[in-house]
Each structure stands twice: as C-alpha cells, then as structure tokens.
Design a protein around this nucleic acid. Structure first.
Lengths: 144, 144
DNA sequence: ATAGGCGTTCCACTCGATGGAAGGTCAAGG
DNA sequence: CCTTGACCTTCCATCGAGTGGAACGCCTAT
C-alpha cells in the first residue's frame, strides 16, 4: 500500500512517517517501480506500535530501543521494564515540578483582586528581591 | 556593568540575555564605547523578573506580555490575573495528561515480570490491535 | 609581547514534527 | 489528447528556547 493508506490505517501522518524514516526510527521503505513507498500490514503494525509508544511520552530514541527489543526474540522483559520504569520516574519528576509551579501561581493569583485597579501582587512578587519573593522561595525549595 | 556581571547577578546566562534581546523580549542594550553591552541595576531587576516568570513556565511571549503590564502604570490587575489563570489551566491540562500516561504505563509495568524471560506484556500491548490494547483504550479515553 | 579572560557576531544544532514549494505519477472525465 | 485532481516525491524553512562553537576584538597583568 502507498504511504497515504498506511497513514490512514496507522493514524500516523504521511509526513511523520517520512520523518521517522529520515531519522532512522523506521527502516527505509520498499519502493514501487515509480518510486512510491510501499508498505505492508506488518509496517502498519510497526507504525501503530510507534504511535502508541510516542503517546506514552517515550522519545523517538526510546521508541527505537523498544522497537529493537520488540524485534529481538531473545531479549528479557527486565530490559523493557527498565525503560518503562525510567519513563515513569521521568513523568513523576515533571508532574511534581508542574504542580509546584501551579501551587505558587495559584497563591499569587489568590492574592490578586483581578479588578481594574493597577495593584497586582503577581507582578509585585515577580519584581521582588529574592528574600521577599514567593516565586524565588519556591524555586529554591525545588532545588533542595 | 558588562553582560557577565548582569548574568551573574540575575542568574540568566549571558548567552540567554543576548538571545532575549535578539527576539525582542528585552530592549536593545546600551553600549559602552568599545561596543560592549552595558547594564544598569534596573536591567538586572528586569532580568530577574523574566527568569522568575520563565521558571513558572510562562513562555517567552507571555513573559513579554507580563513585562508590558508591569511597565504600564495604568493596567488593571485583572489583565495579569487572566494570564496567570490561563497558565494554571494549562498546567492542569498537562499534569492530567502526564498522570494518564503514568497510570497506563504503571499498569503495563505491573504486569511485566521484569526477569530474563522474553515475554513482556508491555511490548505485547503496544503491538496489539486497538480493541485489545490498554494504551489504545487510554488514548481514546483521553479524547472523550 | 603575550597570555588569559572577558566581550562581540554569526552559524549550526537540538527535538519532533509540520508547512510549503516544485515537480512526478496515475486514473477518470470531457 | 488534454486537463483536473488526488496522490506521491524531494528539499528547505519554521516553530521554542536556548546552547555550542568558531573566529574575532578588547583589556589588563605579567
């Protein structure tokens, strides 16, 4: 099948499929005599695998590792689990960081009347010297 | 003061200060006769403001808006609060998305023995047709 | 005079695509 | 036979937010 159909079946945009090939995530596709890329059902499966793994937030590089493991009949499940566990830890770190931002921002927003007067504690805090600033305090708390 | 000192005092890398100037977030710096950028204490304050806002996850563009509001004596606090509230909503969306990924990944990892046998439910699920896949189910749940 | 530590500009690279230009291929319809 | 439109191809540029490095200038101390 041509790239458009593979794209429709896998849910990966044709442009993205070419991109994955160009960066070596996918092997170079077979070509029909006219130079069009030619995909098999197995290729569509691979594309779906890639799309699923990307949707779990694995980087293209990590997806490459998972694909290698998937194709390696002799790999051990601990290798795969290690990648998944590292990704979970990564997610936990990012979630914690974003929640810290959220908390700080929420505190600032709570102090802000949000009316048409010009006094705004959010801006005041951002402009504060470190010792007075809620934001500065939350940044230094993050690094402790 | 020269850019190195402004960088040290504000915590923003010299390279990044030049970058901010190049994209118009900061006004073009004054120059000493030899062509070096010359910064005042007020410039360092601005740099710190920018750094704080960036650490809260505001984009460079949003920081520009906040700076404009900061400099506008007549702005109303509701304008600032609107930006902050939008940012909080943005954070909430991203946190929820990451937690959904985490949950799915954790379920997969829990099923995986993590030993040296080759059977790995993580890879099996990623390669599954939609109707059987935990990942596919969680993706479609996200869009509902 | 030269070594070093600053500063300057400019260009390339990162990641994960995406947009668009310019052109080739193919089937259907007039 | 010609055109139209839907595909396909390659290549280059763009996004955000910087970072790395080259090649050069300036200034001070030894």
């Amino acid at each position: 099948m041509h790239i458009g159909e593979a794209a429709a079946r896998s849910g990966v945009a044709a442009k993205t499929i070419r991109y994955y090939e160009s960066v070596g995530l996918l092997a170079k596709a077979n070509r029909t005599p006219n130079g069009y890329r030619d995909y098999s059902d197995a290729d569509v499966d691979t594309l779906r695998f890639v799309s699923r793994a990307r949707s779990l937030g694995f980087s293209v590089h990590q997806v490459g590792e998972l694909l290698d493991l998937y194709r390696d009949r002799k790999r051990c499940s601990s290798d795969v689990k290690a990648i998944a566990v590292a990704r979970i830890a990564d997610l936990d770190r990012k979630v914690a960081e974003m929640q810290a931002m959220r908390t700080t921002l929420h505190q600032l927003a709570d102090c802000c009347s949000g009316d048409d007067r010009p006094d705004c504690p959010i801006l005041v805090d951002l402009a504060q010297p470190d010792s007075q600033s809620l934001v500065a305090a939350s940044i230094s708390a993050r690094s402790r």
